[in-house]
Amino acid sequence: MRILIADDHDLLRDTLVMFLENEGSMETHAVGTFAQAVERIEADAPYDLILLDYNMPGMNGLDGLKAAIAMGGGQKVALISGEATKKIAEDALEAGASGFIPKSLPAKSLVNAVKFMAMGEQYAPIDFMTAVDDEESNPLAERLTARELQVLKGLTEGKSNKEIARDHDISEQTVKLHMKTLYRKVGAANRTQAALIAREAGLF
C-alpha cells in the first residue's frame, strides 16, 4: 500500500510516517508543500492514498484538494488538518475527497482510517462530524480560509506582518499574500479597515 503525505509540520509528518511504516504493509513518502506533492503525483507510480494538509504552503484550502483529485488519475486524496471545521470537512467530502482526518485522531484510529480510505471507502470521524458547534457560524468567517482568519486576527490585535508571520511559522511574503486576498473578500482597502470590519462583524 503506497501512501503520500504532504504536510509542512516536520514533526507531525515524521510521526505520521512512523505510525504508518510500523504497520509493515505501507510504503510512505512525505513532502512539505503542495507543489512538492504535485511533483510526486506527476512523477511517481500511482499512490493508494494521498494525504494533504489543509493549511500547508500552496494548498489554498479546498482548491488544492480539487486540483490533486483532478490530476491524480483516479488516485484517492484525503484532507488532514488540525484546524479545519466540520463545514470544511463536509465540503471536502462533497468535492470528492476520500476522507477527512483531524490531527487529534489517536494513532491507531489514524492508521485504520488510512487503510479504510486506501481500500476505496470514504472516512470521517463520526464524533467530529456530528459535534455541535459551540458558536453560531459567522458569515464573514465563512468567506475566509483558516489561514486568512489567523492573519485577520493578528491585524485586529495590531500586530505587524513580521509578528503574524512568526506566530504562525510562515514567511512575511505569505502573510502579505493572505492579506491581499482577505482584503478583497471582506471589502477592505487596508489593514485598519480590515480590522474594523472584523470587529464590527463580531469575529474576534
Rank of each mutant, 00 (worst) to 15 (best):
I5P: 02
K162W: 04
T15L: 07
D169N: 13
S98W: 06
A78T: 12
E200K: 12
G61H: 00
Y47C: 01
L93Q: 08
A95D: 07
K153M: 09
G202E: 04
T192F: 09
R199K: 15
L49A: 07
H9G: 01
I164S: 04
M56Y: 09
K115C: 00
L51R: 06
A43H: 12
V31I: 10
F204D: 11
R40F: 06
S81I: 01
R2Y: 00
S98Q: 11
G74D: 11
R147H: 05
V132S: 09
A194M: 03
A165F: 03
A107P: 06
E39G: 05
T28P: 05
D133A: 14
A201S: 10
A89R: 06
A198K: 02
A195C: 11
A84I: 09
K115E: 05
E90G: 11
K87L: 10
A113V: 04
G82H: 07
A146G: 03
K76Y: 01
M26S: 14
L149H: 02
D169M: 14
I170T: 04
D53F: 02
L182M: 15
E90W: 11
T33M: 13
E27A: 15
P57E: 04
R147C: 08
L49S: 05
E21L: 07
S171K: 08
E135P: 00
E136F: 09
E142F: 08
P125K: 03
D14V: 06
A194N: 02
I197H: 07
D10Q: 10
G32Y: 11
E94T: 15
S98M: 09
G61S: 09
K115S: 09
V77E: 05
L11R: 12
F19K: 00
R40E: 14
Q75Y: 04
Y183W: 10
M56Q: 01
A35E: 15
H178K: 15
F128W: 01
T181S: 15
H168D: 12
G202D: 11
Y54V: 08
F116Q: 08
R147D: 05
D14H: 10
M56F: 08
E135G: 07
E157G: 14
G187E: 07
S104P: 00
K115Q: 04
H9E: 09
R191M: 04
F34G: 07
P125D: 08
I170M: 14
A45D: 15
V151N: 01
L93S: 06
R199N: 08
N60T: 02
G32S: 13
E172C: 11
G74Q: 06
E163Y: 05
S104K: 12
M59S: 08
M179N: 13
A195L: 11
N55Y: 06
P57S: 06
S104I: 07
G61T: 09
D91M: 14
V17E: 13
Q193M: 13
A68L: 02
V114N: 03
Y47S: 10
L62R: 05
Y183L: 01
K115G: 03
M1F: 00
N161C: 13
D63I: 06
L12C: 04
N55K: 11
